[in-house]
């Protein structure tokens, strides 16, 4: 069952509307069915669900990396032949769960490539990267190979790359894994600043209490479909729990008795 409570706190039209009828890695074996949600400007949406529910698959779908996809994406009100695909893909920054690195580039060269490919000038790169490198305490390692970094430092580098591009939408896959508490704080602060700039965030996480504090709305994915979506109050209502119930308990109530992956 899919339940939705209409809510638009921002009062603005959605940045992106996603309507996936069927999607997956193999034809005839869909991972996702009837998944529809939207993300508004400056909004943080939590994509939550158990392992294997299809959260990362949704992100890959948005990045255009799924071989099988039936559905529709409306980007800033435009769709179909009118959809500015290039503009959309250039307006999204993806922060994967596992850092993606190139072993023969230094940290600075990773940033240089991101800047060159996205048309950022070298002056802009220097200007934008300096505060980010300071914020994530990577200035000392800027000419080192990230392949030799710790997992946390590698993840911080991915964050710097994403924030550097100043996208309109961040796709953040499990942002808290591998980061120390100070880096988590820095990430949250940086996301806040990005929100003030007008950027939106779609994030997946298993850390439900963090998601509860961080996100404006939630999309609960279960077994490839939507179990519930809306604000925390909406989720509480849908799960039949009283106001004030933590997201964790709502989540348990909505997925109880079903051991599907």
């Amino acid at each position: 069952m899919t339940t939705q409570v209409s809510n638009d706190p921002s009062g603005q039209g959605p940045l992106v509307e996603v309507d996936i009828r069927e999607a997956g890695y193999e034809s005839g074996k869909p991972i996702l069915r009837d998944v529809a949600f939207d993300i508004r400007r400056g909004e943080r949406v939590g994509l939550l669900g158990p392992n294997g529910a299809g959260k990362s698959t949704i992100m890959k779908g948005l990045l255009g990396q799924l071989p099988h996809w039936r559905g529709n994406v409306v980007w800033q009100g435009r769709t179909g032949a009118d959809a500015p695909r290039r503009e959309m893909s250039r307006s999204i920054a993806y922060i994967p769960e596992q850092p993606i690195l190139y072993e023969r580039f230094t940290l600075w060269e990773h940033l240089q490539l991101a800047a060159a490919v996205t048309g950022m000038s070298e002056e802009e790169l220097k200007e934008r990267s300096a505060p980010l490198l300071r914020r994530f305490r990577l200035t000392h390692a800027v000419y080192d190979y990230p392949i030799r970094f710790s997992k946390g430092m590698q993840q911080k580098m991915m964050l710097v790359v994403a924030f550097l591009l100043e996208p309109e939408l961040f796709l953040v896959d499990e942002p808290f894994i591998g980061l120390d508490p100070a880096a988590v704080m820095e990430l949250l602060e940086a996301l806040d600043e990005e929100r003030r700039r007008g950027a939106s965030v779609l994030l997946t996480t298993h850390v439900l209490d963090s998601a509860e504090r961080l996100c404006d709305r939630f999309v609960l994915i279960h077994a490839g479909g939507i179990a519930a979506k809306g604000t925390l109050q909406d989720i509480q209502m849908i799960s039949g729990r009283p106001a004030g119930t933590p997201l964790f308990d709502c989540f348990r109530a909505l997925t109880a008795g079903d051991d599907r992956p």
């Binding site: 779908g61 996809w69 039936r70 559905g71 179909g80 959809a83 959309m88 893909s89 999204i92």
Partner: peptide
């Protein structure tokens, strides 16, 4: 493929 799949619009993103 999209046309054969269904008559409705089908648009892979990005």
């Amino acid at each position: 493929e999209a046309e054969a799949d269904e008559a409705e619009p089908s648009d892979p993103p990005a």
